[in-house]
Amino acid sequence: MTQGTRLIRFQHSDAIRSEYPELVAGTVAAAGITPDGAADSLIAKFTAVAQARLATGTEAEFPEIQAWRRAFSRMGLKPTQYRCASESLLRRFRKEGALPRIHPLVDLCNAISLAFAIPVAVFDVAAVSGGLEVRHARGDEDYLAFSGETEHPDAREVIFADAAGRAHARRWTNRQSGHSSVRETTAAVLIVAEAMHGSAAADVPDLVAAIADGLGEVWRTSPETAIPTPSSPRVEFSL
């Protein structure tokens, strides 16, 4: 753990770990984020990887995406109606040739998500109470949509929940909340990547390293990384 002023935790619930034993997750925590990071060259590098891969087939053929489609089916969701974040990004990138620019950090993480075909979520820790747990919803949690409307996840839906009862993502890797999205004032973040395909145990650490290296190069920060495991599911960072 680094020396800092605020403790942020992350974990998957025992139930999620039990139901999805193939799950591999990686986390990155970093401070010193600013809205003026020069990430264009790295974004181009990773989007080129995705472009080359998409030249050989659509995202639906990728094992990373197929694994998440199976997981969504197990959650009782139609996988072509509710897509994991990386599939949605790849689909848009394939059709439009580019992704909209939002914030240098989000743009970089989206590009890395494209390259690895693995969902990557970026949370502004200032908007997170205590930490995040991926767990089944009770149904009374508050989720702030980007439209500004407050929603409540369905009971048993997989969400990213904090200690205050906020849902920071719905349907697991489908849709993040506007409450903790990165904005110009964001200074410290928690980044989470999750995968379930056969080579996830090797790919997720590589993705985490790519994010950490990118943060160091663009923002001259020293991010902390951790790979939570079934035997050690909770990770902690001080930011």
Rank of each mutant, 00 (worst) to 15 (best):
Cys84Thr: 10
Ser147Ile: 02
Ala111Arg: 12
Arg170Glu: 03
Met196Leu: 15
Val204Pro: 05
Leu114Asp: 05
Trp68Gln: 05
Glu87Gln: 15
Asp140Pro: 14
Phe93Val: 07
Ala145Glu: 05
Ala67Val: 09
Asp142Gly: 02
Ala67Cys: 06
Gly198Ala: 12
Gly198Thr: 11
Met196His: 12
Glu151Leu: 13
Leu89Pro: 05
Phe160Gln: 02
Ser199Met: 10
Asp162Glu: 11
Glu96Phe: 07
Ala164Ile: 06
Gly148Gln: 01
Ala200Pro: 01
Asp107Ser: 12
Leu89Trp: 10
Leu190Met: 13
Ala188Gly: 11
Gly178Trp: 02
Leu90Ile: 11
Val106Ile: 15
Ala67Ser: 10
Asp107Gln: 12
Val204His: 05
Trp172Pro: 05
Tyr82Lys: 11
Val106Arg: 09
Ala169Val: 09
Thr173Gln: 14
Ala188Glu: 15
Ser86Val: 10
Ser147Trp: 02
Ala111Met: 14
Lys95Arg: 12
Val204Arg: 03
Arg91Thr: 13
Ile191Glu: 02
Lys95Gln: 12
Gly165Arg: 07
Trp172Tyr: 15
Leu108Asn: 04
Ala200Met: 04
Asp124Lys: 03
Ala195Ser: 12
Leu132Ala: 01
Arg156Leu: 12
Ala71Phe: 08
Ala155Val: 06
Ile211Ser: 00
Arg156His: 13
Asp203Met: 09
Pro205Leu: 05
Ala210Arg: 07
Glu141Asn: 10
His152Glu: 06
Arg170Leu: 08
Thr185Gln: 15
Ala201Met: 10
Asp154Gly: 07
Glu194Ala: 11
Asn110Thr: 08
Glu157Ile: 01
Ile211Tyr: 02
Arg94Phe: 14
Asp140Trp: 13
Ile159Trp: 00
Ala137Ile: 03
Arg171His: 11
Val122Asn: 05
Leu207Thr: 01
Ala121Trp: 01
